Amino acid sequence: MLMLQRIFTMLTTLSELIRFITGFFKCRTALQLEVLALRHQLNVLQRKSPKRPTLKVWDRLFWVWLMRLWPAWRNALVIVKPSAVVKWHRKGFRLYWRWKSRKKRPGRPPVPKELRDLIRQMSRENPLWGTPRIHGELLMLGYDVGQTTVGKYMVRPEKPPSQTWRTFLENHSNQIVAMDFFTVPTIFFKVLHVLILIDHERRRIIHFNVTTNPTSAWVIQQIREAFPWDTTPRFLLHDRDQLFMASQFAFKRMGIETVITAPGSPWQNAIAERVIGTLRRDCFDHVIVFNEAHLRQKLGEYVAYYHGSRTHLGLSKDCPVHRDIQPKEAGSVVAFPVLGGLHHRYERVAA
């Protein structure tokens, strides 16, 4: 052990002696840089620090500068690792390049909020429109904006673009028939089920029937009776009632394409829901039904009144079956009771 310590001491002394001798052959500039590096490190070590020497920004800049100026800078570095100096140099280069790459001139003028909101509104209201279509529309409105700017502020749908329910129903109103069930209790609390089929174009009740025990076979038979031969509609709109869902294959064989509403979304079959509400408010909220035959009779009376006399907001105050306007010269107004006087039909009758 003692021998090893002596050998280590001799090697240390020899290395110091070699460094001292080679110092005579160094150029004066290298010696001055080495002295500068050592003095800088001594100043850092003399600072008051609780744990370890702290290097400030100027210390790091000094070593980065020394690394670029003196190739043998690693030999004089003691308090930090050379890799740390290289890291400082790279960080400094990134900061320098960021500063050099800064915008020297202002870029494009900012897009006004009004225009940004209009682009988003157009893209939401017209899901089938692309960037060129919206850009062309904005040009027609007098906005000087680039197509890339329009694409930047468009609202991107998560799913493929699809028309709204309202657009679909309006575009196919003359080819859509809505179908739905509603119930009416009798005087003895027996529940009767009513199936109605409504034409979307004129709000006509094409077919209705009553049963105490509805089945899918009964539903299919009602469709056959409502649309004999080649009079079937293109679309049949209904909810997810299990009787309707069980009849899909039969509907398909008839050449009918079913449109099924989303779960818990009665507003998607709004016309059928509205007609059922009208039947309740105008008739069955005021009538006590005795049996199935009585219900069918009252339904027939009201449907006749509904088609030929009752005006509709959705038809510009016309009736499902067009009702001519009677001039004043046609005679005096006479009231005809409907449903025992629950409603009345008014016509001009010549004296």
Results as ranks from 00 to 15, higher is better:
Arg6Met: 12
Ile7Trp: 09
Thr9Leu: 11
Thr9Phe: 05
Thr12Val: 08
Ser15Thr: 11
Thr22Ser: 14
Phe25Lys: 15
Thr29Ala: 14
Thr29Val: 15
Ala30Gly: 12
Leu31Ser: 03
Gln41Pro: 03
Gln41Phe: 00
Leu45Ala: 00
Ser49Glu: 06
Pro50Phe: 01
Pro50Asn: 06
Pro50Gly: 01
Val57Leu: 13
Trp63Ser: 09
Leu66Ala: 08
Leu69Met: 12
Trp73Arg: 02
Arg74Ile: 07
Val78Tyr: 10
Lys91Ile: 04
Gly92Tyr: 09
Trp99Tyr: 08
Lys104Gln: 10
Pro106Ser: 12
Pro109Thr: 06
Leu118Lys: 12
Met122Cys: 08
Ser123Thr: 11
Asn126Gly: 00
Gly130Val: 08
Arg133Val: 04
Gly136Tyr: 02
Asp144Thr: 07
Gln147Glu: 13
Gly151Trp: 07
Lys152Phe: 12
Tyr153Asp: 04
Lys159Glu: 14
Arg166Ser: 14
Thr167Val: 11
Gln175Val: 03
Phe182Glu: 01
Leu197Lys: 00
Leu197Asn: 09
Asp199Met: 06
Glu201Thr: 06
Arg203Ile: 03
Val210Gly: 11
Thr211Ile: 14
Gln222Ser: 15
Glu225Asp: 03
Ala226Arg: 14
Phe227Glu: 00
Asp230Cys: 13
Thr231Ile: 12
Asp239Glu: 10
Arg240Ala: 14
Ile260Lys: 06
Gly264Leu: 10
Pro266His: 13
Ala270Trp: 09
Ala272Thr: 09
Cys283Pro: 05
Ile288Thr: 06
Asn291Ser: 06
Asn291Gln: 04
His294Val: 05
Leu295Gln: 01
Gln297Glu: 13
Lys298Tyr: 01
Leu299Asp: 09
Glu301Gly: 08
Tyr305Pro: 06
Gly308Met: 07
Arg323Asp: 05
Ile325Gln: 05
Gln326Phe: 04
Ala350Asn: 05
Ala350Pro: 06
